[in-house]
Amino acid sequence: MNDMRVTERTVTDKQIKMKARKVQVFYGDNHAIKDVDVDIEDKTVTAFIGPSGCGKSTFLRCLNRMNDTIDVCRVEGEIDLEGEDIYDAKVDPVQLRAKVGMVFQKPNPFPKSIYDNVAYGPRIHGLARSKAELDEIVEKSLRRAAIWNEVKDRLQAPGTGLSGGQQQRLCIARAVATSPEVLLMDEPCSALDPIATAQVEELIDELRERFSVVIVTHSMQQAARVSQKTAFFHLGNLVEFGETSKIFTNPDDPRTESYITGRIG
């Protein structure tokens, strides 16, 4: 089973970027997330896995307060970014989201040119003083998202005209352009074909050098391939959280083992 190969990487003790303690999420009366504790390390890819509806995406959206846009959603517990509670009343979610960027399940480029898509974040956050600086940020972000060579000749073409895989890499470039500290990815490959998926996975591995990446995925193979830490969610509970190699080879919890071996999911 080549797919199940676990990346052999040295996992050193890294600084903890985000810390979640006793997080509860309610959708109206529905208790969607129960008592979740997770530490997100810097310069690490953390994967959230679990069957559909287990709450992994919901929890991901708590990390940059995207759930604020849903009226009925309520979050309790504590989530810290570098020691600061992101649900504190003083925190402006706008500032938070500049530090914790997000890439979505379906590629969602804005109906603008490729250039404007990438420049959108830097513009609203005022990251560039001049056009030249903005050009530089755009180019760097596109290079980082490994799409520069494909689009450098048509930066003014609409972003919606790209293929699915290119669109998703464009969205990653767009998220990278604001130089976030944490990058959240919600099943970024589920709408892509295998080749595009491989490209994005490769990209995620490179992004780890600069950001802390949290990825929600349906595919255990993907989690095994790209992540160093894995959290397994089941029915709103965090069942197990630890080194990816351990979770996939020697899980503590029988539920995790059932899922890994394909008995639940």
Partner: peptide, 17 residues
């Protein structure tokens, strides 16, 4: 589509932006 709004909020844009 809501996905466009999400994309923008995810980048830290305000509602008016």
């Amino acid at each position: 589509p809501q996905s466009l709004r999400d994309g923008s909020y995810g980048l830290g844009a305000t509602q008016s932006e």
